[in-house]
Design a protein around this nucleic acid. Structure first.
Length: 141
DNA sequence: GCCAACGTTGGC
DNA sequence: GCCAACGTTGGC
């Protein structure tokens, strides 16, 4: 079962907000590459939640409870007539015992191939299984 | 279809 | 506040 990483600006929607809400539609993904990754997420898959901005750290783990569906708030179509935007529904699983900072990830050679490092603007990405394992150990997740 | 101009993300 | 690294748009 693949794991993903989802970025969010905590002043807009944080992991604590998800914990409070118990479940939420993950909205706001508009980049096509990110949307393709979002659509690859299946019910039961897990996702690290990463805070951008001042925090720049992985802060928790969530789980997909509903795979991708058309964003009801943005019912636009692409040129092929397919829904342009998608969302997934998530629930919180655990908060990281120790958040893993971007600086830490960049300094660790094990993460050199991680899209979080190589593609700084991508907001939804798959996490390779070896990186997944290492991150969970570091974060206490 | 190309590409110049413009917009966005997100780290610094 | 700046700007690098993209993505998007629209004129041609």
């Amino acid at each position: 079962m693949p794991t993903f990483l989802l970025k969010t600006e905590p002043s807009e929607y944080s992991f604590d907000d998800l914990t409070r809400d118990k479940r939420a539609a993950w909205t706001g993904v508009s980049n096509n590459t990110a949307l393709a990754h979002l659509r690859a997420m299946r019910k039961g898959d897990e996702a690290f939640i990463y805070h951008t901005g001042d925090e720049k750290a992985i802060v928790g783990l969530a789980q997909v409870i509903k795979s991708a569906y058309q964003d009801p708030e943005q019912p636009g179509l692409n040129p092929k007539g397919e829904p342009k935007f998608a969302v997934v529904d998530l629930k919180p699983l655990r908060k990281a015992r120790t958040p893993i900072t971007l600086a830490q990830i960049k300094a660790d050679k094990r993460f050199a191939a991680f899209p979080l490092v190589t593609q700084s603007r991508l907001s939804v990405m798959p996490v390779p299984s070896d990186i997944d394992t290492a991150l969970r150990t570091l974060a206490g997740l």
